[in-house]
Nucleic acid binder design. Structure first.
Lengths: 193, 193
DNA sequence: CGGTCTCTTGACGGAGTTCAAAGCTAGTGG
DNA sequence: CCACTAGCTTTGAACTCCGTCAAGAGACCG
C-alpha cells in the first residue's frame, strides 16, 4: 500500500524509519470502483490523492456538454484540485475512476501537520510541482502549435500504458478533439504504414 | 530594486533583516533593452529571473516559423525555463524583452546555496509553483474548450495591463491564433457593442 | 524621408466539428 | 447459453472556424 508512495518520496528526500511511519500515518486509504467519483464539480477538494492501483482522470464539462480531460493518473501519480484544496473554494473539476482503483489520501489538516513535522517534505512537493508545471507548459504549447495527429503521436509516446487502459473517446478529450476526429485520424495513419 | 522581491517573499515567509540581506546578496541585476534576449533556444537557462521593471515574454518557434507565447512577465513575475535550469539541458524557449526592462537574477549555484541557508524559502517557491501550475492548467483547459473570442475576453480580464503594453500579434500568439484572426475577431466584437 | 514594425482586409482552402446512423464488444440477467 | 442493452468505435455528408497567402495602410524611429 505505502511502498510506492515511500519509493517516490525516497527519490527526493531521505527519511528515517520513524519519519516514514509518521508520514504514512497521515494518510487514509480508499477503494473506488470503475466509473465512481472521487470528486464532483462544485464540491470542495478535501484531499490530495495518490494512486496506488488503477487509473483515474480529472476533467471538466463545458457549456455544450463536451468533456475535457486535464489529467490521467495511474499508479504513482498524484491527483487533486490544488486551488480548491488550499482555498476551500468549489472545484471546477470532476475526478473519476477509469478502472477499479485504490488511493492514499491526505486531508488539508494532516497535510499542514505533515509539513510542519517534516519540513523536508516541502522539498519533495516542490520538485513534484516543478515537474508537473514543466510538463503542463509543454502540453500547452504543443496543443497550441501542433496538429492533432502529432499530438496523438506524442501522447502515445509519453503515455503508452494509457493507450491500453483508457477508452479512445477519453484520449480524444485529452487531446482536445472529438472522438470522431480521433477515429478518422487513426484510420488515416494506419492506411499510411 | 529589491523591494518588490522582498514584498513578494514577505507575503509567504517571515525573514529577519539579516536573512533579507543574505537573500538579496544572492541575486545579480541586469538591464535589458527592448527586443534583446535573456535566453535563446538551444542555450542553457543559467538563471531564474525576477522582473523588477518592464515586461518580458517567453516563446517557442514551430517548424513553420510561427511563434507561440508561453508567458508574459511584467513587474513582480518570475521567468525561467525550469527544466533547463535544473537539468542543464538546452532550452526550447526564447526569452525576450518587450519593453526596456530590469531583472534580478539568481544562478543555479546561488539558488542551491540560498535554499540551503534559508530552507524556509522552499515554502515560498512551492507556493509560487503551485499558483503557476493552477493557472497553467486553467489556461490549458480554456484553450481546449473555448473559442478564440472567449479566450480573448478572458485574457483582457486577467491581464488588463498587458493589453496596453504588448502588441496585438503577440497576444494572438499567446491565445493560439494568428494575428489576422485576432484582428478580425476584434472588429467583429466592436461592431456588436 | 525610407525602413521596419504593426494592424487590417479580402479570397480561398483545409483541418476539425456537427449531426446522424450503424456496427462492434462486453457485461448482465433470464 | 442466448438475448439484450449500454458503452464504444466507425463512417458519411454538410458545414464552420480559422489558417494561409497576398496586398495595402498607418505609425514610429533612425
Amino acid at each position: 500500500m505505502f511502498e510506492l508512495l515511500q519509493k517516490k518520496i525516497g527519490a527526493q528526500v531521505r527519511l528515517s524509519e520513524a519519519e516514514v511511519d509518521l508520514c504514512n500515518s497521515m494518510f487514509g486509504q480508499r477503494s473506488i470502483r470503475k466509473r465512481q467519483y472521487l470528486l464532483q464539480e462544485g464540491e470542495v477538494c478535501r484531499y490530495q490523492y495518490f494512486v496506488s492501483r488503477g487509473i483515474l482522470r480529472s476533467y471538466t464539462t463545458d457549456d455544450k456538454g463536451a468533456e475535457h480531460i486535464l489529467q490521467f493518473a495511474s499508479e504513482g501519480w498524484w491527483m487533486a484540485d490544488l486551488y480548491s484544496f488550499f482555498t476551500g473554494e468549489a472545484s471546477l473539476y470532476n475526478m473519476e475512476a477509469i478502472e477499479d482503483a485504490e488511493v492514499l489520501m491526505i486531508s488539508r489538516d494532516n497535510w499542514d501537520r505533515l509539513l510542519q513535522e517534516l519540513p523536508k517534505l516541502e522539498h519533495y512537493f516542490r520538485v513534484l510541482l516543478q515537474n508537473h508545471l514543466v510538463a503542463t507548459q509543454r502540453r500547452l504549447l504543443v496543443s497550441l502549435s501542433e496538429p492533432a495527429e502529432q499530438r496523438y503521436l506524442r501522447f502515445m509516446d509519453a503515455y503508452p500504458d494509457c493507450l491500453q487502459r483508457v477508452p479512445q473517446h477519453m484520449i480524444a478529450a485529452y487531446l482536445g478533439i472529438t472522438k470522431e476526429s480521433l477515429s478518422r485520424l487513426r484510420s488515416r495513419m494506419s492506411r499510411k504504414d
